[in-house]
């Protein structure tokens, strides 16, 4: 009995970890076609903002967590405008370029780029990886220079749930609840709000969407901010239970990328199904054979999924649906 409870708690723990690790990444990848290798560092921003809001500003923990998510969303917006879409630098260049070419001798002016400086990184997978990898390096080292090798940590709230010889941290159960609520919220946003409608239109065909009056640029910016905000929320929620140091984001990356690859194109359903599947596999193996084998089982599953379900779980579901439709 007690061991079934252990298993159940471990499953909830893995499920919550995978959902929270992957949600922001899934949205940015699924909708914008941008692979954000700085995803872990967005989590870092959320975690540090939360911890500092408690330690330095004195906010209560829930308010600090909200602040962490909002700060990261804002940071994401800035990154989107400068690096991902290049709108900021391009705006500056548009104004600077005529003056520069007027001031410089003709030969020098001829080598100045005349169009926009930065082509947006939407749907340029490899390019977006290089750009965000660079961003991630800058952010890790930047955090180290500004805040040192670690910052003081906040304690985990809520105490424990005891059963028989065992106990479990109540906060980890709260995380599981939050992850389910988060999936519900994202589902609601993408199916019932105007923004969600526009975002899905942009995924399907951004040219047609633009022709029909959707401001695709604003949709992309909002989506990146939303994805960043979710990554920040993940950092905020895990701030009390992980070690506060500049490389903390890297421990989420394996789960995040595996979940997105296994889940496939659909953000909510893909993340939920892959988190449930991977969480079950990881918790059973780590419960029975230890943490090491839990990790091995997770990665083996990802390899098998890549081989046999190249479109992910939701890609497979889509294929089966299409076949049924054809047959009927």
């Amino acid at each position: 009995m007690a061991n079934w409870l252990n298993l159940a708690f471990q499953f909830l723990d893995s499920f919550a970890f995978i959902v929270l690790a992957a949600a922001g990444l899934a949205i940015i990848f699924g909708i914008m076609g941008v692979i954000n290798l700085a995803h872990g560092e967005f989590i870092l921003v959320g975690a540090y903002a939360t911890t500092l809001a408690v330690k330095a500003v004195g906010l209560p923990l829930p308010a600090a967590m909200l602040a962490g998510a909002v700060v990261t969303a804002g940071f994401g917006l800035v990154v989107e405008r400068t690096i991902i879409s290049g709108a900021g630098p391009n705006w500056v260049w548009e104004r600077l370029e005529p003056r520069l070419s007027a001031a410089l001798p003709d030969q020098a002016a001829a080598v100045l780029p005349s169009g926009p400086l930065i082509e947006p990184l939407y749907d340029r997978l490899a390019d977006s990886m290089v750009a965000t990898f660079g961003l991630s390096l800058i952010m890790v080292q930047g955090a180290r220079i500004v805040f040192g090798n670690s910052i003081d940590q906040v304690a985990t709230p809520f105490g424990e749930v005891a059963y028989g010889a065992f106990s479990y941290s109540a906060y980890r159960l709260v995380l599981a609840g939050v992850s389910v609520a988060l999936l519900g919220l994202v589902y609601y946003v993408f199916t019932y709000t105007d923004y969600g409608m526009r975002a899905r239109a942009v995924i399907q065909d951004d040219r047609t969407a633009r022709a029909l009056g959707v401001n695709t640029e604003r949709t992309y910016a909002a989506t990146f901010a939303l994805g960043s905000g979710l990554a920040g929320l993940t950092g905020a929620l895990f701030a009390p239970v992980i070690s506060m140091q500049p490389t903390l984001g890297s421990q989420f990356l394996v789960e995040a990328f595996v979940a997105v690859v296994v889940g496939g194109a659909s953000v909510v359903l893909g993340t939920a199904l892959s988190a449930a599947g991977l969480g079950a596999i990881e918790s059973v193996f780590s419960n029975q054979y230890g943490t090491f084998f839990g990790r091995i089982a997770l990665l083996l599953t990802a390899i098998l999924a890549l081989r046999f379900l190249p479109g992910g779980i939701t890609g497979y579901i889509e294929r089966v649906r299409k076949r049924r439709r054809r047959e009927s």
Binding site: F166, Q251, G290, T291, R295
Partner: peptide, 16 residues
């Protein structure tokens, strides 16, 4: 129990 260096979730370790 031996824990991989990348691991940061100790729920099952604590249970054991």
């Amino acid at each position: 129990e031996f824990v991989p260096l990348k691991e940061s979730s100790f729920g099952s370790t604590i249970n054991r």
